[in-house]
Design a protein around this nucleic acid. Structure first.
Length: 282
DNA sequence: AAGCTAATCAACCGCTGCCTG
DNA sequence: TCAGGCAGCGGTTGATTAGCT
């Protein structure tokens, strides 16, 4: 038995939204808030599918959307995030305040892909186009998860741990003062790292990056929906900070203030960022 | 000015995963 | 444990706009 359609297709409008439809949707959400998209069209007097209403609101009508061109900083941030997360547009959008997943996805496909290609970088693998698949990457190669299952993403109450593997050139790691667990060398010696050689015989190290995410206690108030999943809460913290060079990678994600859980990375800073994800790229 | 092509982006479609009974 | 309902996500489509000849 197939699933019932999400809406009565025979009685719904499709295509571009009219100003009147937009206004109805805005008025309704202002009064009642987001949530229950399935019943919203009927309640708001719209002949639209709930999914369509949701999309229109999220991608176009939301008041906190930033319109206009992407800045150079945003470009670079998207590239870095894509190298880490792959085509997880919603996660990427979660770190770019005022930008939507759809917008970023379109922008990626129309601008950034071309930009990377012109730099001689494969937009999917973030490796040099001239490079043999088996050779070590430039300074840092982060292998994006091809499938979500490869990103070991486990929710455990308020703590998320996820791990993924990256390959870092051995010589880059030597100079790095961050350990794989995000600790400084002053605190604890680095964990032993497996060393492997690729087909060309070049020595390289495989670095197991463990990211620890502690969820802040504050979440977006109107997070109706199934937004109580840890992953979706994560998206409510749009700020992401990169610092330092990309010679080696120490990743430490935090939500909320100060070091939480197992994180000992020196990524603390005060003020507004107390409520932001902090992501150190040192 | 007209016709064609490329670029852009809003919207749709189908699938996935979470929640609930 | 399982099935159904739902929201959300990512890929794709198609209408519109811009640029070129």
């Amino acid at each position: 038995m197939g699933r019932s359609p999400c809406c009565e297709k025979a009685h719904t409008n499709k295509g571009a939204w009219t100003k009147e439809e937009d206004q109805r949707l805005i008025d309704y959400i202002r009064t009642h808030g987001e949530g229950c998209w399935r019943s919203l069209p009927k309640s708001a007097g719209l002949l639209r599918c709930g999914k369509s209403c949701r999309l229109r609101w999220i991608n176009y009508l939301r008041p906190d959307l930033k319109r206009g061109n992407f800045s150079e900083e945003e470009d670079e941030l998207i590239i870095k995030l894509h190298s880490l997360l792959g085509n997880k547009w919603s996660l990427i959008a979660g770190r770019l305040p005022g930008r939507t997943d759809n917008e970023i996805k379109n922008y990626w496909n129309t601008h950034i892909k071309r930009k990377l290609m012109s730099r001689g970088i494969d937009p999917q693998t973030h490796r040099s186009l001239n490079e043999k698949p088996t050779s070590a990457a430039a300074a840092v190669t982060v292998t994006p998860p091809a499938k979500p299952t490869q990103l070991d993403f486990k929710a455990n109450n308020s703590i998320l741990d996820f791990k993924f593997q990256t390959v870092v050139k051995a010589e880059s790691v030597e100079e790095n003062n961050c350990s794989t667990s995000g600790m400084t060398t002053d605190e604890e010696p680095p964990l032993p790292r497996p060393v492997s050689a690729d087909a060309g015989g070049e020595r390289r190290e495989e670095l197991n990056l463990e990211l620890t995410i502690g969820l802040a206690t504050t979440t977006r108030p109107s997070s109706a929906s199934s937004g109580n999943s840890a992953e979706s809460k994560l998206q409510f913290h749009p700020y992401l900070q990169f610092s330092g060079t990309a010679e080696a990678v120490c990743l430490c994600w935090q939500l909320g203030g100060g070091a939480r859980g197992n994180c000992h990375c020196q990524c603390s800073s005060g003020g507004r960022q107390q409520q932001q994800i902090r992501y150190q790229y040192c």
